[in-house]
Write a protein that binds this DNA or RNA. Structure first.
Lengths: 369, 369
DNA sequence: CTGTTAGCGCATTCAT
DNA sequence: ATGAATGCGCTAACAG
């Protein structure tokens, strides 16, 4: 049917092994032979049989990138950055493939199984993790199995798995755990969501805002929790009273535009005298802006709005959106390099990338009545 | 090392063949045996070895989705829709993986090779194609080889390959071409870009605009060309003079925000009396808006702006963006079904999805001076 | 530097 | 309905 190694070998007048060697490149082969083989490959339009190769070598060149929402640039940028490090053009290039979990824990596990089945070389999990006892345990178990199978795991934009779930409960099997030679713990590239949110809220407080609404992300998500914690920490530092009031001024929703729209309306209903609204991310912030405008409020004259992430469109919004910049591309690229083992793991296995306040036109001092 | 079929077989007290049968499900197995096997699978946490399975069966459950820019929701939405049809949760589920070409023809070919190497079950190519003689030929050749290898090909959001490139030049090999039994020609889900652009321009003309700038996409791309053709057709129909003037009022750039910004400035330089600007897509339109605003122009009072695609953020822009809606999700889902063979090919192998004018607040009659 | 020899893990005949 | 045997195409020792 298809052209095989043997065909190429015959054509080039060498053995299959030799062809394999020139193709993988990691073995000395005489220049003359090499070019002869290469020519045969060209002429026959030979393409390696991935499965066969993976079976024999018990490793594949597949790298999985799991994202919560492929239609969201937040993930698109990271995924693109990861892929940019894989160099599929080169000989040793990996095939970076992105898998869309849609934020569903089940699909996350399913994809991990599928990738394990493919004997993926590495897996990068991006974005917030679901904070659910059961799921965390299941996830940790699956990741452990992947690791044991030689798949490198990198977490990007989510915190390390909690110690409890790592399941080192079976620690009785030897003090030095030498048995799983390749068993590297997952490496993490975490975002400083807490710090970013804190600085953002401090920015609003400094402008004079005291009644600040918060349209948070989905509950039970690490990112949601961390950003909220940063926000509340800033409030608490400034005035415990504000912290007490913040519960009523916080609503939860998905990471999408309509949650922002609905959330803003709900907040306005609860507290018509709000002077500022913080959103779970930039997309949500746009929805917030739309709702506020529909209510006849001007931004930032009547009410300030801020987002999070600093996606490309945020600078172009009208007015330009105050937000917190996360170096998504850099983070993704680093995750990619870590996944390939091209960069050594940070001390402790966790690197935290800084976030930066981007104060723009959508926030201003509250109106003085 | 890892758990294998044989391990499961031993555990269940049956032969490997039987285990294989219950797992693939396409063969009669006694109920009792089946459940015994299933339990063994559970207990051993067995995960099929994809490469081995693919090698033996000479097909894999991988489906590739090629996109030009994974950070662009235009592609994210389509990719997500394709994946939604794959059902990785189910037994016969495929692993839909998206590959980011970055719009580079070389990477497109590279990914196709990688997917061919993996013996992908299907490949979906989304978005505009590069119109370059050499590349088109190379692409056609590679697609033909994939098809011959049993990989189903679906084009989504791009026109069918030109006849010339399909290389049916070797037609001498028999009138009924029975030899390649599986060799189905690529199926296409095309967008009516031409019609959409035409209606959009007609909308502006009806509002009274006559000096209309056009910030087009990259040259040598099918989408760019089709949208421009629709625009020019509308102009020609209305007044040949307008068509003649349109060359000077057209600039090209990438499908991104900054192209819109720069393009708008350039157009303003060439024709300060413009009353409307059409953009290659919504993202570009946002850049156009930003530039115009920076020049002190109000939208739509001083100048109208329109985009294309109707991405989710367009309705939320301020002002809401007039644009042309493409049912990206539906198109992607259909492409996914076609890729799986779950839906039969449309007559002629080409389905064209309708586009719809979304007239919103960013377009209005020109100011009367 | 190159050829020979064994499997890798599974799907699939062919028997039973 | 199940088991035994064969080979998918390639890589990785091992010789030479």
């Amino acid at each position: 049917m298809a052209v095989t190694l043997a065909d190429v070998a015959a054509r080039a007048g060498v053995s299959a092994a030799t062809v394999s060697r020139v193709l993988s490149g990691n073995y000395p082969v005489a220049g003359a032979t090499r070019s002869r083989v290469l020519r045969a490959v060209e002429e026959l339009e030979y393409v390696v049989n991935g499965p066969a190769s993976a079976l024999a070598a018990s490793t594949s060149d597949l790298v999985g990138v799991l994202v919560n929402d492929i239609a969201d640039p937040f993930f698109g940028i990271m995924a693109s950055a990861v892929q940019s490090e894989m160099g599929p053009e080169k000989a040793g290039g990996k095939l970076a493939v992105v898998c869309n979990t849609g934020g569903s824990p089940e699909r996350e596990l399913t994809y991990l199984t599928l990738l394990q089945r493919q004997r993926a070389a590495a897996v990068v999990l991006t974005g917030s993790a679901v904070e659910d006892e059961k799921h965390t345990t299941a996830l940790a178990a699956r990741l452990r199995r992947l690791t044991e199978a030689g798949t490198r795991i990198v977490l990007c934009g989510r915190p390390p798995l909690p110690e409890a779930a790592t399941g080192r409960a079976d620690g009785a099997d030897g003090a030095d755990g030498e048995e799983t030679g390749d068993s590297t713990a997952p490496i993490t590239v975490a975002f400083d969501n807490r710090g970013g949110a804190r600085r953002l809220t401090e920015h609003l407080l400094a402008l004079g805002h005291r009644r600040i609404g918060y349209v948070a992300g989905p509950v039970e998500r690490t990112t949601t929790r961390h950003r909220l914690e940063g926000h509340r920490a800033a409030l608490a530092d400034h005035d415990p009273q504000l912290l007490a009031a913040s519960d009523r001024l916080t609503v939860h929703g998905a990471y999408d535009r309509s949650s922002g729209y609905d959330g803003a309306l709900e907040l306005l209903r609860r507290a018509p005298d709000l002077t500022a609204v913080l959103a779970a991310n930039d997309t949500v912030a746009l929805g917030v802006c739309a709702a506020l405008r529909d209510q006849g409020l001007r931004i930032p004259e009547d009410i300030s709005v801020a987002g999070f992430d600093d996606l490309p469109f945020s600078a172009d919004a009208a007015p330009a959106l105050t937000t917190v910049r996360i170096p998504l591309h850099e983070a993704g690229a680093r995750a990619g390099r870590l996944a390939l083992g091209r960069e050594s793991a940070p001390p402790g296995g966790v690197a935290t990338v800084r976030t930066e306040l981007m104060a723009r036109a959508s926030t201003a001092p509250p109106r003085v009545n």
